[in-house]
Simulated scan of single mutants.
Amino acid sequence: MFFEDFTKTGCVYHIAAINDLKKIMSQGIKYNDKASYKEKYCGFHQLFDDQKPAYIPKWVERKKAIFATMNYRKKPGFHSHTVVMALKIDIKRCWIANENKANQLYEPFILKNILEYNSAENYLQTKGKEIIKNYWSTSLSFENNLLERADQKENYDAEVLIFHEIPPENIRPLFIVSDHRVQTINQWKKIFS
């Protein structure tokens, strides 16, 4: 794993655009506080929420989640111009799901309204429904995950759905990512001193 386990750190990890860091460090993180939320993700999350089984708690709504990861298996390839942060969370207000399942549907969801790719709509209505059913059936509470450790199973990329705001005092920037390097916060500070 890239970071030490949650049982040692008590942290999950979140990535945001570097342009958002000042606001994050002064106001914290909310699920809907970035322009990209409405533009890129809200409708996609609704697709999953609309097909959520009744046995999943009502408070688990993707459209109202802050997304993080339990860990990375290897050295990840982070997106340029981002900041990687450690977050302290209330585990009673978090849910775990397999991000690999959700990621299979993002491109079809986006492309379905382009004539050349409109067959993606049929995919979403058939195979997509099966994937969403599997997404929910393999999801579990954060607390149960700590007992069962689904996040450590092969092909399970645990996304953490956080259902509370993260105040600035529970956020610790770890890395700044540019086109050419990934550096710790202290390494970046040395560049400017």
Rank of each mutant, 00 (worst) to 15 (best):
E4F: 04
K8N: 12
Y13G: 01
H14F: 04
I18M: 06
K22Q: 11
K23G: 02
K23L: 03
M25I: 08
S26C: 05
I29D: 08
N32M: 01
D33G: 12
K34Q: 12
K34V: 05
E39G: 04
E39I: 14
K40R: 13
G43V: 04
D50Q: 11
Y55V: 10
P57S: 09
W59P: 02
R62F: 12
K63V: 03
K64Y: 02
I66A: 03
T69G: 03
M70I: 15
K75N: 10
F78E: 05
H79P: 14
H81P: 02
V83A: 09
M85Y: 02
A86Y: 09
L87V: 07
I91M: 08
R93D: 14
W95V: 08
N100H: 10
K101M: 12
K101Q: 06
Q104N: 01
F109Y: 15
I110M: 15
N113D: 15
N118E: 14
K127I: 06
I132C: 09
T138M: 07
L140V: 13
F142K: 06
N144P: 01
N144V: 05
D157M: 05
V160T: 03
L161N: 10
I166N: 09
P167E: 14
E169A: 12
N170V: 08
R172D: 08
I176L: 12
V177R: 04
V177L: 05
S178Q: 04
D179N: 14
D179T: 07
R181P: 00
R181S: 11
Q187I: 00
Q187T: 02
Q187F: 01
K189I: 15
S193C: 14
